[in-house]
């Protein structure tokens, strides 16, 4: 059976052949490339294979970065750190303040201790009875011997402790052995007195440290954003003052938050007050 070819069919025949030929040529020419692409795709899809190839390159880059980083980025890092420190000076000071205070106090105490031990040794060589020691001590201090004996008998007790915001005078925490009439007003008034004295004398870096009121002493330990005020009943010697100061520095370091909000929330107040009662 023969098929009659229409003029249209006759025109399409060479085109079909051409397409087939081109397809075959394409297949031959691109076969290798396609196999390569399939191989690369398989590598990319398989994480393990990919890691095997890329990890060594990354390691080389990391090593190179480590070597070059200080040289390439030192100035930028220094600028960022400098900016950051300037922006958070208050927080930084609050962290450093108790630690620095402790270090300075430790050094001064050590020096005084050495001095005291030296004096004790000398006195010990000369006198063996406590009475004689007191007599000499009274002479050295320029006070009456009875005053030294009384001081030995005097017992100092901590009556109240206030943690107060330095600027606003708002109470942040409180501990008391007895009921106080109005601790908020006391905190505010103490801040006003402190501000008044410090402004009136305007001595740089000088702060009010002790207020004498009858048999009471108000000891003040200042920090950057707050201060702690301790109400004592009885007299306080330099050594006791040092010990109290060290205790307050320790409290500030361990219990006080590094940043302080403008407002004192009731929960923060409760927490600090509880910590104070544990310490004192």
């Amino acid at each position: 059976m023969t098929t009659e070819k229409s003029p249209q069919n006759l025109g399409n025949e060479p085109n079909k052949n051409e397409d087939l030929m081109l397809s075959m040529i394409r297949e031959i020419l691109l076969k290798e490339d396609r196999e390569d692409i399939a191989d690369i795709k398989a590598h990319f899809d398989d994480n393990e294979k990919l890691a095997e190839r890329i990890n060594p390159i990354i390691e080389i880059h990391v090593e190179s970065m480590k070597r070059k980083f200080p040289r390439e980025y030192q100035k930028q890092v220094e600028r960022i750190v400098e900016r950051k420190i300037k922006a958070s000076q208050d927080e930084l000071l609050d962290v450093v303040y108790p630690v620095m205070g402790k270090m300075v106090r430790k050094y001064v105490n050590h020096q005084f201790l050495s001095l005291k031990e030296g004096l004790d040794d000398r006195l010990g060589q000369l006198f063996s009875f406590k009475g004689w020691y007191n007599r000499i001590k009274a002479m050295v201090m320029g006070v009456d011997e009875s005053e030294i004996l009384l001081r030995d008998l005097d017992h100092t007790s901590i009556e109240e402790v206030f943690i107060i915001q330095r600027d606003s005078g708002l109470l942040m925490g409180h501990f008391s052995r007895n009921e106080t009439i109005d601790r908020d007003v006391i905190a505010g008034m103490l801040t006003a007195i402190k501000s008044f004295v410090e402004d009136a004398f305007s001595k740089e870096r000088q702060e009010l440290e002790l207020i004498d009121y009858g048999t009471y002493k108000i000891f003040i330990q200042s920090f950057h954003l707050y201060y702690i005020s301790v109400i004592l009943d009885g007299s306080i010697s330099s050594a006791e003052k040092d010990a109290l100061s060290a205790k307050l520095l320790d409290f500030a370091e361990k219990e006080m938050p590094n940043t302080l909000a403008n407002d004192v929330s009731p929960s923060d107040y409760e927490t600090l007050s509880m910590q104070l009662s544990k310490y004192f």
């Binding site: 600027d167 606003s168 501000s195 402004d199 403008n262």
Partner: peptide, 10 residues
């Protein structure tokens, strides 16, 4: 007025 009196005022 001493500045310290004003500080911290809301």
């Amino acid at each position: 007025v001493p500045i310290s009196y004003f500080l911290g005022a809301a």
